[in-house]
Simulated assay, not measured.
Amino acid sequence: MLNRFMQSRLRGLVILALILIILPAFLGNPFHYELVTQMAIIAATVVGLNLLVGFAGQISLGHAGFFGLGAYFTGIATGTYGWSSIPALVAGAIAVGIIAWVVGRPILRLKGHYLSMATLAVGFIIAIILNNERAITGGPDGMPVPALNLFGWELSTFGQYSLFGVEISGVQAWYILASLVLLLAVWFALNLIESPIGRALRSVKGSEVAASVVGVDTARYKSLVFVISAVYASVMGSLYAHFQGFITPAVASFEFSILLITMVVLGGMGSTFGVILGAVVLKLLPQLLANFQELETVMFGLILMLTMIFMPKGLLPTLTALVAGKVRKKTGGKA
């Protein structure tokens, strides 16, 4: 029989897949498809970041730097040197993983505010390099990125494609790809969490001293999850670059790093499906508040502040606890 966690994991994946299948029925135009595709790509990024922050307890305020490196590596490799998209994406992920390992070994020895400042510095350094290396990256003006070449199939937001005999637009094809990638990212994260590596990460978050006493190599596991989360960001950055068709150093900015960590905190640290909800909410809120014009930023901040005051554990864990509490009351505490 499946244990409770595996049942919950399978149920969550099925629900997420059903939502992604049903969602196109409510998308009325290409802009909606572009928005939800961006949501899926960013949601997959924060699923990786949540492994570092939510399960290992290690903060990162410069994670957009790895996202930007993946985007620019792919953009340069495919646009300047004529690489195919998949080799460029894989090579970029490997390169970013190596950089994350080299950088992570020393800075992950730090704790608290010192670790936050170190990761922030890494993000700033990457953003400065992308801004200043005009000959390679185009500088602040950015650079164009070719359409995604997927096993000989060129995927562009402006194209028209036939899928199992059904004609779909480019944005619809991108939505399908992003949805599949998100499901794969969630599946991998859930399996990692339940593996011996995941249990080691949870012990590190609980107490590094206690974890070390029972034989957990805390430095190794912290570096490993730092690399995994960076590779997540790199792969999603590569896909984002192809999807947008144009990138600027904003993809590695401090503001984007803060947005990513806010999605994790808002959705619920340690909740894989919660951080997806956090990503959706923070991508939707600016669209919903656009009519308030100059008050948009104030209301955005107010909503976040009230959410964190009244839902400190995050949106999904709080809502789940409320529903579970009501169920227990109705069943007389037997649920």
Rank of each mutant, 00 (worst) to 15 (best):
V213L: 14
R328L: 11
A25T: 13
F158Y: 13
G206I: 07
L51A: 02
I15A: 15
F300D: 01
G301N: 07
W101T: 09
I247L: 12
L16G: 03
V46I: 14
P144S: 14
E194S: 13
L23E: 01
S238E: 04
L16C: 11
V280E: 06
I98V: 15
K283D: 08
G142S: 08
H242F: 07
M6W: 11
I258M: 15
G237P: 07
V281R: 00
K205F: 03
G82K: 10
L260H: 02
S238P: 08
L120V: 06
G278D: 06
P144T: 13
L120W: 11
S271M: 09
S207E: 08
T331L: 15
G333M: 11
V209K: 10
M6S: 13
G68I: 12
V251I: 15
Q58V: 14
K313L: 12
S257I: 08
G48A: 10
I22Q: 04
A321R: 11
Y232P: 10
G68L: 08
S60E: 06
A64P: 05
Y114P: 04
V264L: 05
P312D: 05
I19P: 01
Y232M: 12
V96R: 00
H242K: 09
T331H: 04
G123Y: 01
I22G: 07
N3Q: 06
G237F: 04
N50I: 06
S271R: 07
A100F: 03
A335M: 08
L35Q: 11
G65R: 00
F188T: 11
L180N: 10
Q7H: 09
L89D: 01
E294W: 06
I86P: 03
I309R: 06
M1Y: 10
A118N: 02
R134P: 00
A95K: 04
A252M: 09
L177E: 03
L2N: 08
T331M: 10
I21E: 08
S253A: 12
L49D: 02
F73G: 09
P24Q: 12
L277E: 03
G123I: 05
V36D: 02
L35V: 15
G65E: 04
L16A: 13
H32C: 04
G70H: 09
I21T: 14
F246Y: 15
V181L: 13
A56R: 00
